[in-house]
């Protein structure tokens, strides 16, 4: 069991101190298919919870990646611009999207743990 938390929009969050690393879940990358382009936010931008933060495009779809938490973008995964396939290959590792400095730690309580997310996915079927 990992410590990752999840949103209903299939983003994952991993917390280290006041920094949250964010990406999309295995399920999300599978649904999207081959990712061809990722547009990341500017570092330094403040985002509110559930605000559009990034755009992800596959051959067949384009979707928004929402900020799971309120805070400031402190780092983005520049490598995705060059090699978007990493999102498919390793969504929980090198395919991460961005890091946010958490403003409202209480928002973490709204996220699902891995087990809850698994149940959530099972309900979608």
């Amino acid at each position: 069991m990992s410590d990752r938390l999840y949103t209903k929009d299939h983003e994952w969050v991993e917390v280290d101190g006041d920094i949250a690393t964010i990406g999309i879940s295995e399920h999300a990358q599978e649904q999207l298919g081959d990712v061809v382009f990722v547009e990341l936010p500017e570092v330094g931008r403040s985002v509110a919870q559930n605000e559009d933060a990034a755009v992800i495009e596959s051959v067949k779809a384009a979707s928004e990646v929402y900020a799971p938490l309120t805070g400031e973008i402190v780092e983005v995964n520049e490598m995705l611009a060059e090699d978007p396939a990493q999102v498919n290959a390793d969504p929980y590792g090198v395919g991460w999207f961005m890091r946010i400095r958490i403003d409202e730690p209480s928002e973490l309580d709204e996220l699902m743990d891995e087990e809850a997310y698994k149940d959530f996915l099972a309900d979608l079927e």
Binding site: V36, F37, E57, S58, V59, K60, A61, A62
Partner: peptide
């Protein structure tokens, strides 16, 4: 190619 910029996929965006 790059049709995800277009209306039939992105609709209002």
């Amino acid at each position: 190619t790059l049709s995800t910029r277009e209306q039939h996929i992105r609709r209002e965006k």
